[in-house]
């Protein structure tokens, strides 16, 4: 029997993997994929809580998150294309005129 704890554990693991991905990977696209993993872990938590609470609001909010993640992806990938046209790379270690 799957309980709320199972879902929360899975979502916490996904969130942690996302954070680790952002902090360790150097390719901008993979960093962005890790961010998407974080957002989806939150979606999983929302759906699990909504089912437990018997409340539809949490499930509806997931659609909000998905729609906004799509908008963010559109702008983010456009920015990456602009960077690639100028620098011929999207490795964040090589994008460093402004010092960190």
């Amino acid at each position: 029997m799957l309980t709320l704890e199972h879902f929360l554990t899975l979502s916490a693991i996904m969130f942690a993997l996302g954070v680790i991905g952002v902090l360790t990977r150097r390719n901008a696209i993979i960093v962005f994929m890790s961010v998407e993993l974080m957002l989806n872990s939150a979606n999983l938590a929302f759906v699990a809580f909504a089912t437990k609470l018997g409340d539809p609001i949490g499930q509806v909010f997931v659609f909000f998150v998905m729609a906004i993640a799509a908008a963010e992806a559109a702008v983010g990938l456009a920015i990456m294309i602009a960077v690639f046209r100028n620098k011929k790379t999207v490795n964040i270690d090589e994008i460093n005129i402004l010092k960190w």
Binding site: F32, V35, L39, V83, I92
Partner: peptide, 22 residues
């Protein structure tokens, strides 16, 4: 400089959004 600023802002801003949503 402008696109570099944009990329850095985007990646860290999206990262922060992940925290807010969770």
């Amino acid at each position: 400089k402008s696109v570099e600023a944009s990329l850095k802002y985007f990646l860290l801003g999206a990262f922060a959004t992940g925290f807010v949503v969770y």
